[in-house]
Simulated assay, not measured.
Amino acid sequence: MSSTRDIDALIDMMAKLPGLGPRSARRAVLHLIRKRELQLAPLAGQMQRVADTARECARCGNVGTLEVCDICTDAARANGQICVVEDVADLWAMERGSAFKGRYHVLGGTLSALDQVGPEDLRIPQLLNRIGAEEISEVILALNATVDGQTTAHYIADQLENRVSLTSLAQGVPIGGELDYLDDGTISAALAARKRL
């Protein structure tokens, strides 16, 4: 039996996390072991609490510890707007910006013929149900600018045609972006979405 079997197993598990490879995982585990009392033990305890309590919001698909998340229960956010995102990471990114003050709907992915993901595999039916139930006046499609993301946006737009106002996020040159570093698609989208000064 190896004296480092458990440590090696922890490194292997950490290496599977997004953004960590084997070397980064090894450094992180070594750091945690050195700071066992201050970081490793509290981290292990917090991870167990999250494992025991984390769940998807029954209404929007966000992740939290209650059946309905804080955003969905906040009466101030019931302003008639729903921002549709692909996954929870996108919702969290939108919240970091603090610009959107409405509610969200997490689809759980995008339509994909190659991966055999259809509308019934996503949370599209729940979105359609929410439109009437929550008196939604505007649906903001904040899906990624990929082929699957745009296909999903078009499908949702077809389903909601003449029911609500549909908008999407602007696409184009980011603040601080330099034209020389942008791809052709981004430049084309920015040119098509130009506005008068």
Rank of each mutant, 00 (worst) to 15 (best):
V50D: 03
T53D: 03
A54N: 07
R59K: 14
G61W: 00
G61D: 05
V63Y: 15
T65W: 14
V68K: 02
D70F: 09
C72T: 01
D74T: 13
G80E: 10
G80T: 09
Q81S: 05
D87T: 11
A89K: 03
D90E: 09
D90T: 11
W92L: 15
M94I: 15
M94K: 03
S98E: 10
S98C: 06
F100S: 05
F100W: 11
F100E: 04
F100D: 02
K101C: 10
K101E: 07
Y104T: 06
V106N: 00
L107Y: 03
A113H: 08
E120Y: 04
L127N: 00
L127K: 02
L128S: 02
N129A: 01
R130S: 04
I131N: 01
G132F: 07
E138Q: 10
V139W: 00
L141M: 01
L141A: 01
G149H: 00
Q150A: 12
T152D: 04
H154V: 15
A157K: 11
N162Y: 12
V164G: 04
S165I: 14
L166F: 02
L166C: 05
T167K: 05
T167A: 10
S168C: 11
L169N: 07
L169R: 04
A170H: 04
L179K: 10
D180K: 05
Y181C: 06
L182Q: 14
